[in-house]
Lab assay of single mutants.
Amino acid sequence: SASLEDVKTAVLGLLVILQTKLYTLPASHATRVYEMLVSHIQLHYKHSYTLPIASSIRLQAFDFLLLLRADSLHRLGLPNKDGVVRFSPYCVCDYMEPERGSEKKTSGPLSPPTGPPGPAPAGPAVRLGSVPYSLLFRVLLQCLKQESDWKVLKLVLGRLPESLRYKVLIFTSPCSVDQLCSALCSMLSGPKTLERLRGAPEGF
């Protein structure tokens, strides 16, 4: 439990870093931090981490990651405290083949985003970082199938509809809506759902 406290501190630090690096160059920093966060949550489900502190780590990670939004130009952003989304000039939600690297070039400044813009690109060529939603999407499927803490599952179920409104997140990387529907149906009809959940409301 003591070591998990250190892990929790590290994860919180990564969330803060991602919130900053999403809007700064090099964009590969945001890509790497995002991948680290998603990989860490995957390990929770792989090794069945069920301690309360592990659940709190997942809760905080999902609470942040499910706020990711994308505009029509595929640029990622996060809402501010007033709910207004600021889109990044440097990070996009497109999935890119590994051989192309985590970044790609664009020939010049991008068109203005639909929300308040981030800082304008400084040079004639900007390297865009790929932060594909499919990585998070796979972890969300694991959550629906394996999550043991009701608070975490409730958060994910509550945030998913709003995330799905931003269709560009889903359609720019390999996210299977069929698998999502299947996971939701299995969660509702499967007898093991109630068996594994802690803290579920009576009558769920």
Rank of each mutant, 00 (worst) to 15 (best):
P89I: 04
V152L: 02
R32W: 01
L51Y: 04
V7H: 01
G77V: 02
A183K: 03
P116Y: 15
I53V: 12
T24C: 15
S56Q: 15
R196D: 05
S107H: 13
Q142P: 02
S130E: 07
G101W: 06
T31A: 09
S55I: 07
A10P: 00
L153F: 03
Y166N: 13
L144I: 15
E99V: 14
R32Y: 03
S163K: 08
S56E: 15
L194E: 10
L25E: 11
C143L: 02
Y34Q: 02
P112D: 15
L37R: 02
Q142C: 10
L73N: 11
E202T: 09
L197A: 03
A70W: 02
T193P: 10
A183I: 11
L180N: 00
C175F: 03
L15H: 07
S102H: 12
L12E: 15
R165M: 10
G77D: 02
L135C: 10
Y95W: 13
V38Y: 03
G199L: 06
V92H: 09
S48T: 11
L68A: 07
L169S: 04
L141W: 03
L153S: 01
L155I: 11
G199P: 06
K151F: 09
I41S: 00
S134A: 07
I17K: 01
C143W: 01
V38S: 04
E162N: 09
K154C: 06
G129Y: 08
C91D: 03
C93V: 07
D178M: 05
Y49W: 08
S173Q: 04
A30T: 07
M96K: 10
P201Y: 09
S111V: 15
K167Q: 07
L67Q: 11
Y34M: 07
A27F: 08
L188S: 04
Y49F: 08
S111R: 10
Y49S: 03
C181L: 07
T50R: 11
R127E: 15
P79A: 10
P161F: 06
H47R: 14
V92K: 09
S173L: 02
L184N: 00
A200V: 14
Y49Q: 02
A125F: 11
S88Y: 02
E5I: 08
V85R: 05
L110P: 11
V139P: 06
R86L: 08
K192N: 15
E147K: 00
C93N: 02
L194R: 06
G190K: 09
C93P: 04
H29K: 02
